[in-house]
Computed example of a mutant assay.
Amino acid sequence: MIAHNYDHLKQLCGYRASGLYCSKSYEDVFQDTVLLVSQDEKAATLTNEKDLINYFCYRFRMIEFQAINDNKQLKEIPYADYLQTQKIPEEE
């Protein structure tokens, strides 16, 4: 069903030609979603094409959200003022 609806899924997922998150383009995120959904046990139980399309779009948004957050985390610079040092217990 994924192969049959491939072009339709690209349009529904808000497919974009550009944009990089953690060295991943939207094409990479889309392909990751194809792999994840094709191996997902829940997706295998879906018999209705509409349900599978909705599930695919849901998983795409989850993978895209994770890629965006990973990208934000890489850009943050931990300054020494913000880091807490662990207290070393004093020995008697």
Rank of each mutant, 00 (worst) to 15 (best):
Y55M: 07
I53D: 00
T47E: 14
T33V: 03
E41C: 02
V29A: 01
Y26H: 12
T47W: 09
C13H: 05
S23R: 12
E27R: 14
D7E: 14
M1H: 11
T47V: 08
S18N: 09
L20S: 02
Q39I: 03
E27L: 13
Y55H: 13
Y15V: 03
S38H: 07
T33Q: 01
E27Q: 09
A44Q: 15
E41H: 08
F30S: 00
G19H: 04
H4G: 01
S38G: 03
S18Y: 14
Y21E: 03
S23D: 12
V37T: 00
D51K: 09
Q39V: 02
D40F: 06
Y55T: 07
L35E: 05
F56Q: 02
L46I: 10
V37Q: 00
Y26W: 10
C13R: 03
Q39G: 02
C57R: 14
D51C: 06
Q31K: 12
C57A: 13
Y6V: 05
A17H: 14
D32E: 12
Y26R: 02
V37E: 00
S38T: 03
T47I: 10
L52Q: 04
M1R: 06
M1Y: 11
Q39R: 13
V29E: 00
L20K: 09
D32I: 04
C13M: 05
V34H: 00
S25D: 01
Y58G: 06
T33R: 01
S38D: 06
D51S: 08
V29I: 15
E49I: 15
C57W: 07
A43P: 11
V29M: 08
N48R: 06
L36Q: 04
V37A: 00
K10V: 06
S18F: 14
L20E: 02
V37W: 00
A17D: 08
A43R: 09
T45F: 08
H8R: 15
K10R: 15
S38K: 08
D28E: 03
N48V: 08
K50H: 10
D7T: 11
Q31Y: 13
L52G: 00
A3K: 15
T47K: 08
V34N: 00
Y26L: 04
K42T: 13
Q11N: 12
E49W: 12
Y58R: 15
A44S: 10
R16G: 01
Q11K: 15
S25Y: 05
A44C: 08
V29L: 08
E49G: 01
M1Q: 08
D28G: 02
